[in-house]
Design a protein around this nucleic acid. Structure first.
Length: 675
DNA sequence: AATCCTGGAGTTTTT
DNA sequence: CTCCAGGATT
């Protein structure tokens, strides 16, 4: 506590009502939340099980939990909830499963599963093109995040097309029900609907939660906000921490207006600003402040730091994107020697993932180690989706999606025609595909060659399931892998052996994680009172991910970090490069077209504020895109950074003399600022 | 079931 | 231009 500045301390101590902490970049918000949790436990004597802290990513949740545990002196954190919104929702659904009408072992559909299901639904519906699937999926997700039921969506629809999508939305929900499944959005939406309609359950949860803390509040969507409001009840014991200037996820439903909404919904809201930055030099912060001042603001705030003026921001105009990448690599190599630092101290940030490609080439050719973050996430890799399919079907035989994924992977001679008949029959009888296999009615429609592999599969899978649920799940699963010779199938289906090896490693990683999660589930008592088995809960937890970040941490050796501006939020690096500072790239073309410049500016702001010591910006004079090379225009955001903080290279319009002059002005103005 | 071919898109992404 | 998905072809 003594480590905190007065504002931070005030934010920790204020517990008499709802509190909004406006935490600027690098102002120690994680510290505040962690310290507040420990303060609530140690000083206010609130039992950990009555406190919940909510984050957006597993990584953030894990870090916070760790810090709280480290801060606690005399008490234990046992029973404390620090989890993601989705995890909290999942726990809620699990413990109120019966009220929802789900069977044990319900599946969680990820985006890919949802897409498959929507495709299935639209194909049968001939008056809708299949190429609108992405739009439909997006729209459904949007409705769910806005808490719109299919019925409401239909009645609000403004066109025939929208009505048609609303009808698919309804069938999509029905299908999920039939599959005993929920999707990611349901993890938030379903708890909200139940809390709204069931007073008894609402009171029970409100009685359980005495204090609620929310991180990255500017990223909450309508459903998440409603969940927070319902859980906090009229106790109003709630602290939310956020920064509207770092709201960069409006495109996926985040509503930074939720910050303003708080003032209306909680009239006695206290607001505390954290403006001291412990990360960056004064120049970098002044640049960031000037930039973001071009956005309208609900709450004015201005970051400052006492870490010294620092180096000017360097802006280099390169001939083309190739020269740009080369320049960045050379700079990194030079700076590493000059500043005596490590590769891991550098980050290269960009707007779009494709920008990483040239960079990768140049880094490789110079032998610079790098870590590319982003890319396909662990749980969307084919091998993991395959094995998860087996696991899901094991605990939830109604999950037709899972069955379809794995029934012929590896090949079992069960083809499209067979599945077509099976589907038609199951549909008629209103049972799941798995249940339909081997029924008498089925046998008439299938040829013996079709029937045999199906029934063989079911017999085998029933046995595997039995082994897995009764005895040692992990060894039963390894046995299953041998049975189906999954390894052989991998080697046969991948271009090189190293890819197959890697995939096999991933599967073992998954098993290890599953074993750990089962242990956790067996120990946790409170939320699993519905009598479901540990493995069911473990598989559900796996789907909401907890593996990816862990892997990244392990491999974070001495490597240059490459990532999108979005992915950089929450991180910091001694030396930051922002590349592609051009109109149409940053701000992105589509954002210009949609008139959404403010979010692009915030994105730039996030990038700038990642830097501790130096910030290097680059742009390419000519860029090749869509086959043709054309001249670029420097990003408008560059003009919003005070010229006296910038050192321009490659613009040809400023002599070293002018540079020096600006450098003087810059120092003078900074001195004035700090006088 | 595997492979080739064509067409369309080409921001950001967690759970 | 380059990549991927999905369809068509073998």
């Amino acid at each position: 506590m003594s480590q905190l500045n007065p504002q931070q301390q005030a934010a920790v101590r204020y517990i008499d009502g709802p509190l909004l902490v406006l935490a600027g970049a690098g102002s120690g918000k994680t510290s505040v939340i962690s310290n507040k949790i420990s303060y609530l436990i140690e000083t206010c004597n609130i039992a950990p099980r009555h406190i919940a802290a909510v984050t957006f990513t597993n990584k953030a949740a894990r870090e916070m939990k760790q810090r709280v545990t480290g801060l606690l002196e005399s008490k234990s954190a046992k029973g404390l909830t620090v989890s993601t919104f989705h995890n909290l929702g999942l726990n809620f659904i699990r413990s109120e499963r019966k009220a929802f009408g789900f069977k044990a072992g319900f599946s969680i559909f990820d985006a890919e599963d949802s897409r498959t299901l929507i495709k299935e639904l639209t194909v049968r519906d001939s008056d809708l093109d299949a190429d609108h699937i992405d739009r439909i999926q997006h729209q459904i997700s949007h409705w769910k995040n806005a808490l719109e039921s299919p019925e409401r969506a239909f009645s609000k629809a403004e066109s025939k097309g929208e009505q048609a999508i609303a009808l698919i939305y309804r069938r999509y929900c029905e299908a999920l029900r039939a599959y005993n499944a929920v999707d990611f959005d349901d993890l938030i939406m379903l708890p909200v609907t139940l809390l709204q309609t069931d007073g008894e359950i609402r009171r029970r949860w409100q009685a359980k939660l005495h204090y609620l803390l929310v991180d990255e509040y500017q990223d909450t969507n309508a459903a998440q906000y409603e969940l927070i409001r319902l859980l906090s009840g009229d106790r109003n014991a709630i602290t939310v921490v956020g920064d509207d200037d770092q709201s960069i996820y409006a495109w996926r439903g985040a509503r930074p207006e939720n910050m303003a909404q708080l003032k209306t919904d909680f009239p006695d809201l206290q607001v505390i600003k954290l403006e001291q930055n412990y990360r960056s030099t004064a120049r970098i912060l002044d640049a960031a402040n000037s930039l973001i001042a071009n956005n309208p603001h609900l709450f004015e705030k201005s970051l400052w730091s006492d870490l010294g003026f620092g180096d000017p921001i360097r802006l280099t105009r390169c001939a083309n994107e190739e020269a740009e990448a080369e320049h960045v690599v050379n700079e990194i190599l030079n700076m590493r020697i000059e500043k005596r630092c490590h590769f891991r101290d550098f980050a290269v940030l960009y707007r779009g993932n494709h920008q990483a490609r040239i960079l990768e080439m140049k880094l490789q050719s110079q032998g610079v180690p790098y870590q590319l973050s982003g890319g396909t996430s662990f749980f969307s890799r084919t091998e993991i989706k395959d094995i998860m399919g087996y696991l899901r079907l094991m605990v939830n035989p109604d999950d037709d999606n899972a069955l379809l994924r794995i029934i012929n992977t590896p090949r079992r001679g069960i083809g499209a025609a067979t599945l077509e008949k099976l589907g038609a029959y199951a549909n008629r009888r209103e049972i799941s595909l798995y249940a339909a296999i081997g029924e008498f009615g089925m046998q008439e429609t299938l040829t013996p060659q079709q029937q045999e592999p199906l029934e063989h599969f079911k017999l085998w899978f029933d046995r595997v399931t039995g082994n897995c649920l009764s005895g040692e799940p992990i060894s039963a699963l390894r046995e299953m892998l041998d049975d189906i010779d999954y390894q052989g199938w991998l080697y046969q289906n991948t271009s090189s052996d190293s890819v197959a090896e890697n995939r096999m490693r991933n599967i073992h990683l998954l098993f290890e994680q599953l074993a750990r999660t089962i242990d956790d589930a067996e120990q946790a008592d409170s939320l699993d009172a519905d009598g479901s088995r540990a493995i069911e809960s473990a598989i559900a937890k796996l789907v909401v991910r907890d593996l990816l970040d862990r892997q990244e941490e392990e491999s974070a050796n001495d490597k240059v970090q490459l990532m999108t501006l979005h992915a950089s939020k929450g991180l910091e690096f001694p030396h930051v490069f922002m590349i592609g500072m051009e109109e149409a790239l940053l701000p992105h073309r589509s954002s210009i077209e949609e008139g959404n410049i403010e979010e692009e500016r915030r994105l730039t702001y996030v990038g700038v504020t990642r830097a501790r010591q130096t910030l290097n910006m680059t742009l390419a004079g000519k860029r090749r895109q869509y086959g043709e090379t054309s001249a670029t225009i420097p990003s408008r955001f560059l003009d919003e950074i005070p010229e006296h903080h910038m050192e321009r290279y490659g613009f040809g319009d400023s002599t070293p003399e002018q540079q020096k002059q600006r450098g003087k002005e810059s120092l003078d103005s900074l001195k004035e600022l700090f006088a």
